[in-house]
């Protein structure tokens, strides 16, 4: 398995190279000009042109790509056009809030959605099942920002239990850190909970009809044992797959959630960079996201072996 994992890690290199080429080319052909944004609205065309030259944006595509790629190979993501700070520093400043939000959301979503799906499958056709599926439809349908505003209104403005916005680093204490993440995690987790709950229910329904479940019942295994020891373990592979796919959802959702709750994370950094055409930052962040996504997929593949001993690499 170690050899397999190593092969997969090595295989990320060409994937990342393709992503890098794709991202750079897309940004190159997309309209917009960071020099115009830097110069300000009152700047003359000559000022804008001078800034463009000073940033090297007037150089040909191949020269710019070659320069960027050479630095990437050396581990240098470049320097932000606007802040003049290294992209790696900007990512480092922002990674903790995003990582915290994603981890909390992931834990929250899995710990709520899996039992929900299991119970819905167990009570198929009852009001509990319908309620869970109703929640799932709602979770899919209501946009993250609407949920965010509602939560902030109820729990921050009306009840004054939690802060409206912001982020407190973990180093300043667990509760202040957690306090700022509760509402964003619930808002972001809605879609994710809905997705996992539906898949869990569907997979569990299929597994619960298998012969070995009937055998287990015949042997006198209790309901809890059937559901959580026999059925859930066998339903785990598709659920874990969806959890992995959902990481992409989380990355996308984090952009909106971080804006609504004013969390200084990577999502906001990405949006700000795109609006300003801060090319090095956009390229750096997308490379990072791609890398994370590839690693999560690898992790999911490795997790399969835990749940299904028949899978070997």
């Amino acid at each position: 398995m170690f050899a397999y994992a190593l092969r997969r890690v090595v295989a990320t290199i060409p994937v990342m190279a393709i992503v890098a080429l794709f991202v750079f080319s897309l940004l190159y052909i997309s309209p917009g000009d960071p020099a115009a944004v830097i110069a300000g609205d009152q700047a003359t065309p000559a000022d804008v042109e001078r800034i463009r030259q000073s940033l090297g944006l007037d150089r040909p595509y191949l020269v710019r790509f070659g320069d960027w790629a050479w630095h990437i190979i050396q581990g240098d993501l470049g320097v932000s056009i606007f802040t003049n700070l290294p992209v790696s520093t900007m990512i480092a400043q922002r990674i903790e809030p995003t990582l915290s939000l994603m981890v909390i959301t992931l834990i929250l979503a899995v710990s709520i959605a899996v039992p929900m799906g299991v119970v819905a499958a167990w009570k198929q056709g009852t009001w509990i099942d319908r309620a869970v599926m109703g929640f799932a439809v709602l979770g899919f349908s209501v946009p993250v920002f609407v949920v965010g505003y509602l939560l902030a209104y109820i729990f921050a403005l009306e009840l004054d239990w939690l802060p409206v916005q912001g982020y407190t680093p973990f180093a300043r204490g667990v509760w202040p850190w957690f306090q700022n993440l509760i509402l964003p995690a619930i808002a972001l987790g809605g879609v994710y909970i809905a997705l996992i709950a539906r898949i869990t229910r569907a997979t569990m329904l299929e597994v619960l009809q298998q012969d070995y479940i009937r055998t287990a019942r015949a042997k006198g295994v209790g309901q809890k044992g059937i559901l959580f020891l026999h059925a859930l373990k066998n339903a785990a592979v598709p659920i874990v797959t969806v959890v992995g796919i959902g990481v992409a959802l989380l990355i996308g959702g984090a952009v909106v959630t971080e804006s609504v709750f004013a969390i200084p994370g990577l999502g906001r950094l990405t949006v700000d960079a795109i609006l300003r055409r801060d090319y090095p930052v956009i390229q750096g962040v997308i490379l990072l996201f791609s890398f994370v996504y590839v690693l999560v997929n690898l992790l999911i593949d490795l997790l399969y072996t835990l749940f299904d001993p028949r899978i070997r690499y």
Partner: peptide, 8 residues
């Protein structure tokens, strides 16, 4: 970035 958040 969000006006509603700033208001809250």
């Amino acid at each position: 970035p969000d006006a509603a958040t700033a208001a809250a």
